[in-house]
């Protein structure tokens, strides 16, 4: 067993274990931390796959951005020590069955298929290539999605504002938190 295999299995084990912990943990903040571990491990996988740029993005945006956002919101909405009632047995059972069925179905189907690697040589994924592709208007260029996603981000920002913004006299006073 070579090093990268060990590495892979280690990362996989972490991902799987922490994923499961994320979805079953009864303390919400812990769940968020487990999620962080999952994301970090995943970025490890990306490194293994030689996608350093993406791994970095994963770490910054996901681990650094989203998880922090989530933790903030947890802090806003929950007591840290709050423990959840576990999900009802029936609910868990059925969900587990469904998820397992789906997993088995997907895995069986995936294993059924013979993936054949292409003979064309791999490109070296360096920042220049990424940058070029991202700004290229030709085939395999991604400038359009790149531009559109900026609209998306703008829209998301406006959306978040629109939800949070107070407008006019409130008919009903918000019952608990005073924000903004």
């Amino acid at each position: 067993m070579i090093a990268n295999q060990i590495m892979f299995f280690l990362l996989s084990a972490m991902i799987i274990v922490f994923s499961i912990l994320t979805v079953i943990s009864r303390k919400i903040l812990r769940a968020a931390i487990y999620l962080l571990f999952v994301l970090v491990s995943t970025s490890g996988l990306y490194f293994m796959l030689n996608y350093q740029f993406l791994a970095a993005v994963q770490l910054t945006v996901y681990a650094g951005g989203i998880v922090v956002l989530i933790i903030f919101s947890i802090l806003l909405t929950s007591h840290i020590s709050q423990r959840f009632e576990p999900a009802g047995l029936k609910k868990s059972m059925f969900s587990a069955i469904a998820a397992l069925t789906g997993a088995i179905l997907s895995i069986v189907t995936i294993l059924d298929y013979k993936f054949e690697a292409t003979a064309i040589a791999a490109k070296e994924v360096d920042m220049r290539l990424i940058g070029k592709s991202l700004l290229s208007v030709d085939y395999d260029g991604y400038v359009l999605p790149f531009e559109v996603i900026s609209v998306l981000l703008l829209a998301a920002m406006v959306a978040a504002i629109a939800i949070a913004k107070k407008s006019g006299p409130a008919k009903t006073q918000s019952p608990t938190l005073k924000q903004e």
Partner: peptide, 20 residues
């Protein structure tokens, strides 16, 4: 919401099983 999601998900799985 979760029941909706459950139906959604099982629907997808069942369709997949059916057609595969």
């Amino acid at each position: 919401l979760q029941k909706y999601a459950y139906v959604f998900f099982t629907g997808a799985i069942l369709l997949a099983i059916l057609f595969i």
